[in-house]
Write a protein that binds this DNA or RNA. Structure first.
Lengths: 257, 257
DNA sequence: TTTCATTGTGTTGATATGACACAATGAATA
DNA sequence: TATTCATTGTGTCATATCAACACAATGAAA
């Protein structure tokens, strides 16, 4: 994959290396102190924050583009990334990030330049372990930070809409896809897993009913260990049964009709 | 929207009017004599059948492109079309329809022509009333026909994979989206609706349990009329309560967690 | 030693689901 | 005209699932 020396270089040569008109936006969710977070970038000299995004190299699978973008911002590899929607309104590019950003940076995008045209955006979402991530900014950004899902800043373009759609998808997927493997440490307690579910669903769940239901999926292994050094009763530790977890990822959890 | 006078014209001027690299493929399901059918095109001088597809005009919303393609093949308007996946492997275009088709037709696609490059494909599916459709071929096709889902012909490129993905999506959507409004006539009987579900799921359902469950969704209106002129006991007619049907389409049928 | 928030493990009643039975209908048949 | 019979309408029952709730066990903090 080609390297770009500067923004100007990117502007000039990007069109040769990227698919025109196609962009990827990643909604990267993290979980910390019982809050659902999302990773956002603050582009230089532009009002509002942006989802980590990018373009598709000519010879690259779009799933790999999403993985690459995720890795560039988080350093994480081999994370489950789910396609959730394609945003294809012709209006969404009117105040496109690129045009606005370059203009404010004093660079006018030449007529006919690859970045000046319309882009559709393919949305991917990921769930990552907050603790393992060191957010990394890119060249056109001045910050890359986690934001609480309930206290979001203003977002550029239609990125607010994209984020909400990802959140809705995540919530509905929760009923028929296992969740937690990349979000929680290797060993975790039942209350920790429950907090994750409550946070994603934004809803309080009954402790006992939750345990019964999640255990019925058969994707957890109860360990002999207990979490030590915590106040109150020591909770048992669990880990995911990876074989069953991945099978559930493929086949789903519900029985359907 | 521009008109194209010939295939050659399409080849030459299409690049000016369509988004490069982006295509739409529609999986159009129909229901007839208790069989689930899918509408396929037979491109001239090409081995294998193809899903109805097309490209996105520069100023066009991708949802409208899908509607337009659906309408061109079926004459139907205002049908629910659902995005289900984006197929974005760089390899899928290697033996692309366009290149192959034009070559066999004796026209070599010039180097750099818009149709010669890589395309991602956005998949949409629709459920339409078989009876209302008069399949219409396009310029590059010699046939447009319904095919039984269980007796499919060989398909070009990755269209077999696209079709299977659409079918899987349709089946899972069945548990939390109402289905049938565009597929059945205005008034229909309970057994007819059940056959539709059985056909989509490829599974036999219990008559009495089906009735109980489908009625519990509250999207049906039981009419005073009965179907006349049929052998055996006359079944009652039902129709969809459109307000509740559309609410269910938006909010889903399941309770979630 | 006592306190107390938290965890482990139940129970109960309401509801949903799967399996199944029987009477009613009405065109086809004798 | 009476009988047949596939099909429809409407149930029941046993079981599984789900929401709501209670109580004992734990172990750090007071």
């Amino acid at each position: 994959m080609p390297e770009f020396k500067s923004i100007k270089d990117y502007l000039e040569r990007g069109g040769k290396h990227f698919m025109p008109g196609v962009s990827i936006d990643c909604v990267i969710f993290g979980f910390h102190t019982n809050l659902l977070k999302v990773l956002l970038l603050k582009p230089k000299k532009v009002e509002g924050w942006a989802l980590p995004g990018g373009f598709v190299y000519n010879e690259e699978h779009i799933d790999n583009s999403a993985q690459r973008i995720l890795c560039e911002r988080t350093g994480l590899h081999d994370i489950f990334l789910g396609q959730f929607y394609v945003f294809g309104s012709p209006l969404r590019s009117e105040k496109s990030l690129s045009v606005e950003a370059f203009k404010k940076a004093g660079i006018d995008i030449p007529k006919g330049n690859w970045l000046g045209g319309r882009f559709i955006s393919i949305g991917y979402y990921a769930l990552v372990d907050f603790e393992n991530v060191i957010p990394a900014i890119d060249r056109i950004s001045e910050a890359c930070e986690w934001w609480d899902i309930h206290r979001l800043p203003a977002l550029i373009m239609d990125h607010g809409e994209i984020l909400q759609k990802a959140l809705m998808t995540l919530r509905t997927h929760l009923s028929y896809q296992p969740v937690g493997y990349n979000l929680l440490p290797q060993k975790f307690t039942m209350p920790e897993l429950q907090k994750l579910y409550e946070t994603i669903l934004d809803e309080k769940l009954d402790r006992r009913n939750f345990q019964r239901k999640i255990l019925s999926y058969g994707i957890l292994k109860k360990l002999k260990e207990q979490r030590k050094g915590v106040a109150h009763k020591a909770p048992f530790l669990y880990s995911f049964d990876l074989r069953k977890y991945h099978r559930a990822l493929k086949e789903g959890l519900q029985n359907g009709w």
